[in-house]
Simulated scan of single mutants.
Amino acid sequence: MEIDYYEVLEISRDADGDTIKKAYRKLALKYHPDRNAGDKGAEDKFKLVNEAYQVLSDEGKRQIYDRYGRDGLKNGGGFSGFGAEFDFDDIGDIFSSFFGGGSSSRRKRSNEKYPLDFEISLTIEFNEAVFGCEKEVEYKIKKPCKTCNGTGSKDGKSTSCPHCGGKGRIAQTRGFMSFVQECHHCGGTGQVIKDKCPDCKGRAYEEEKQSLKITIPEGIDSGMRMRVGGKGNRGVSGGVGDLYVSINVKQDEYFIRHNDDIYVEIPVFFTQAMLGESIKIPTLRGTKELELPVGAKDKQQFIFEREGVKNVNSERIGNFVVQISIQTPKKLTDEQSEMLKKLQESFGIKSGESTQNHESVLDKIKGWFK
């Protein structure tokens, strides 16, 4: 029986990203092994929920799944099973709601008032991701406020945070487990300010616009990050952080990408499929000849090796997968109808009769009642 990922997550096929994420969190929490110790069924369900989320939360994978089903994803390497490819941000949220704790997503360096590393997002075109490009990005960095020298205080003074005792972290215990999280009163610095700087309002920094030209490597994909060293925020101690660029790739109207493989559906007229014609098809790098076998079937796939996307790390080139869609005419002229009837008769098929042997079917049915 074919697994339906939408049924697994208990959502409709037109569910949006937020609905998918909410359904995943709810079910992952419900079936998590820590909550169902020794329950093999719950563990299997948890694996399946995670697998479904991996596919439906990824636009590229979801498109392939919607069009080709689960088998269409196998060319991309499949899944690694339990414990692999988790969305750790979501899992963190699940544990937070389960145990009432949480963890800081990014620690500050030394005594800085703000993280020196930071991230921006960049959206690029499909072809720019496939072949690489150069992009100029504009962003704002943080640097110490000149008025208060990066202290955030009007008089440059601060006191130890009474909530965390100056540690910047607060420990919480839930049953047999302990969690340490950033103190939200002092923002993890361990210090609080009574009289805030009038210019930065106690933030300890001011912002400065930056412009930077970056080279996007060939084969980059959505969800990948690029690190640009020394282009992040500036700290009061003189340190400079790194800039991280999170890539988002727009979808193409015709091509669908899954990892390094490219999928495309090509319409083929039924006579071309019957005759096994050779047709021209568009690929990433121009046109190719697709030689159809005589009697090619609807949804049949043909693979062109090393015609996909170059892997951004290994430089291995993926495959180009063509799936044909057999097209039949909606209307026929009298002449066309007559020609098709003659063709049908030439194959020994009588009008109004099935091509299947009726007697063999009847014999099989009679056997059901013996």
Score class of each variant (00 low, 15 high):
Arg13Lys: 14
Asp14Trp: 01
Asp14Arg: 08
Ala15Ile: 02
Asp16Tyr: 03
Asp16Leu: 01
Asp16Glu: 12
Gly17Ala: 10
Asp18Trp: 07
Asp18Thr: 15
Asp18Tyr: 11
Thr19Val: 13
Ile20Lys: 05
Ala23Tyr: 02
Tyr24Pro: 00
Tyr24Asp: 02
Arg25Cys: 10
Lys26Val: 04
Leu27Thr: 07
Ala28Val: 03
Lys30Trp: 02
Tyr31Cys: 04
Tyr31Ile: 04
His32Glu: 12
Arg35His: 10
Arg35Tyr: 09
Asn36Gln: 09
Ala37Tyr: 07
Ala37His: 08
Gly38Phe: 01
Asp39Lys: 08
Ala42Leu: 04
Ala42Met: 03
Glu43Asn: 12
Phe46Asn: 10
Phe46Thr: 02
Phe46Ala: 13
Lys47Thr: 14
Lys47Pro: 00
Leu48Trp: 04
Leu48Val: 04
Leu48Cys: 07
Val49Phe: 03
Val49Asp: 09
Asn50Asp: 12
Asn50Thr: 13
Asn50Phe: 00
Glu51Phe: 01
Glu51Gly: 01
Ala52Pro: 02
Tyr53Ile: 03
Gln54Thr: 06
Val55His: 00
Leu56Phe: 00
Leu56Cys: 02
Asp58Lys: 06
Glu59Cys: 00
Gly60Gln: 07
Lys61Asp: 10
Arg62Asp: 06
Gln63Trp: 06
Asp66Arg: 10
Tyr68Gln: 08
Gly69Arg: 05
Gly69Val: 06
Arg70Ala: 13
Asp71Met: 11
Asp71Phe: 06
Asp71Glu: 13
Gly72Asp: 06
Lys74Gln: 14
Lys74Thr: 14
Asn75Met: 12
Gly76Arg: 04
Gly78Met: 07
Gly78Ile: 08
Phe79Ala: 15
Phe79Pro: 04
Gly81Tyr: 05
